[in-house]
Nucleic acid binder design. Structure first.
Lengths: 125, 125
DNA sequence: GATAGCGGTTTCCCAAAGGATACCGGTATG
DNA sequence: CATACCGGTATCCTTTGGGAAACCGCTATC
């Protein structure tokens, strides 16, 4: 259940690391998580999403969405019936299993920001 | 406490993303987490650690250790008394606050691996 | 007919990440 | 004297990540 709390001994820790690195490979980079969070509020169309993920270029968004779809985290729907061909991206159920991970990163990042500020105060004071 | 479960609305999600990206900036890259896990079992000396983190070069290990130390996640101790100058690296208390994050990444990565295998089975069967 | 939006792709380019190798001064060991 | 271990550093190189801008066909709108 937990990664070894003590005595890594090469083999044990190497094993635990594999899965950690797997996660990081899928979620690493600048845009994967922002996109997932951007979709967490409901389906979005390409340009909508690009506006929401502030700063991302069309090229990056396109590429990252492909990656995420390949890994089953999101799904792409094309409505050819509509006149200018609407495309919507939806966070898949499997993508939602990432929420605890995002939560953990979010919580730590927030606490870390507070930690930094606190250290800064002592200096600034 | 939790990142917005619905209706991101730009501002909300942008705020939540900042801390997530902060975490990723500190922990991202190929080696940071492996090193932390490597130290989770107790203090290690440089070469010991390099052997444990399988595959890392001295240059990378040295650089990453500096980064981690600057961020207060680990601490470096030099024992000049010993003849060939021993250096030990220890996971700081603050570094241990990362355990929940690592746990989350570990758990998801492990589940993901199972997920992939499962999908593979259907094909392989 | 011009302009704007959609959903992208293509090309070019730069900076950062990271690997390989050699080397450093020190000691101990054969 | 040669070799190996320690804790690194310096140099060079390739790979990757990612940004900028132009462009695509199509539609709707002024």
């Amino acid at each position: 259940m937990s990664f070894p709390a003590s005595a890594p001994s090469h083999t044990t820790c190497t094993g635990a690391m594999r899965s950690v690195r797997d996660s990081l490979d899928l979620l690493g980079g600048k845009w994967k998580l922002p996109i997932i969070v951007g979709l967490s509020g409901g389906p979005q169309r390409f340009k909508q999403l690009q506006r929401e993920v502030a700063g991302i270029t069309a090229k990056m968004l396109s590429k990252e969405l492909k990656d995420l779809e390949i890994n089953g985290l999101i799904s792409r729907h094309v409505q050819a019936d509509a006149a200018p061909v609407a495309v919507t991206y939806t966070l898949a159920a499997y993508g939602r299993t990432l929420f605890p991970v995002i939560e953990a990163l979010h919580a730590w990042g927030q606490q870390h920001r507070a930690h930094i500020m606190h250290a800064g105060e002592a200096v600034a004071a």
